[in-house]
């Protein structure tokens, strides 16, 4: 076990918890970016360089910015008076705790069967990823492309202002 892993894992989990616990919505979004950054560093630790940088580019550069924009456009930065948690929060918390205990139990049960040390670090160049995307994974790639196009058009149409009288 090593110390960097513990530090980054703690940072990620703290960022995640802050993102769901804080009162101010913008603070939540900023804490979320800490969790995203921590996850990106964890990816880098796992020798997944491309995935780590893609994580930073997509999540911090795009998703976090989208979230803060949405918060400002919906005037969500003001803390509501009647609490930030839903009135069924106890049930939600119980479900989450149950899910975590089941997952944790499953992981700890299977410790003996898990590989302790990884295979020798594979040298994954961007070239390999590109070849895999254009070869074995070309169909998923095309489907993702269609999905992204559909999402782009869909998001624009959903968020577009409906003008009175026209369509």
């Amino acid at each position: 076990m090593n110390i960097p892993f513990y530090l980054i894992a703690a940072l990620t989990v703290l960022g995640g918890s802050a993102a769901v616990l804080l009162k101010n919505t913008v603070h939540c979004a900023l804490a979320l970016t800490i969790a995203f950054a921590g996850l990106a560093v964890l990816f880098l630790q796992l020798d997944a360089q491309f995935a780590g940088f893609a994580q930073i580019l997509v999540y911090i550069g795009a998703v976090a910015i989208l979230v803060v924009f949405a918060i400002l456009l919906t005037r969500g930065s003001e803390t509501p008076k009647d609490g930030v948690f839903s009135h069924t929060w106890l049930a939600g918390l119980a479900v989450a705790a149950a899910v975590f205990s089941v997952l944790g139990w499953a992981v700890l049960q299977s410790v003996p069967g898990l590989p302790y040390t990884p295979a020798a670090a594979p040298i994954v160049t961007v070239n390999d990823i590109g070849k895999a995307l254009m070869g074995r994974y070309v169909l998923p790639l095309e489907i993702v492309a269609v999905l992204l196009t559909a999402a782009l058009i869909g998001a624009v149409i959903v968020a577009m202002h409906e003008k009175e009288g026209t369509k």
Partner: peptide, 19 residues
Amino acid sequence: ALLFAIGLAGALTRRNAIL
């Protein structure tokens, strides 16, 4: 697993749709 549970708790307990 912990992050997943935190995310689930957030999705189930918060009132704000963005959260």
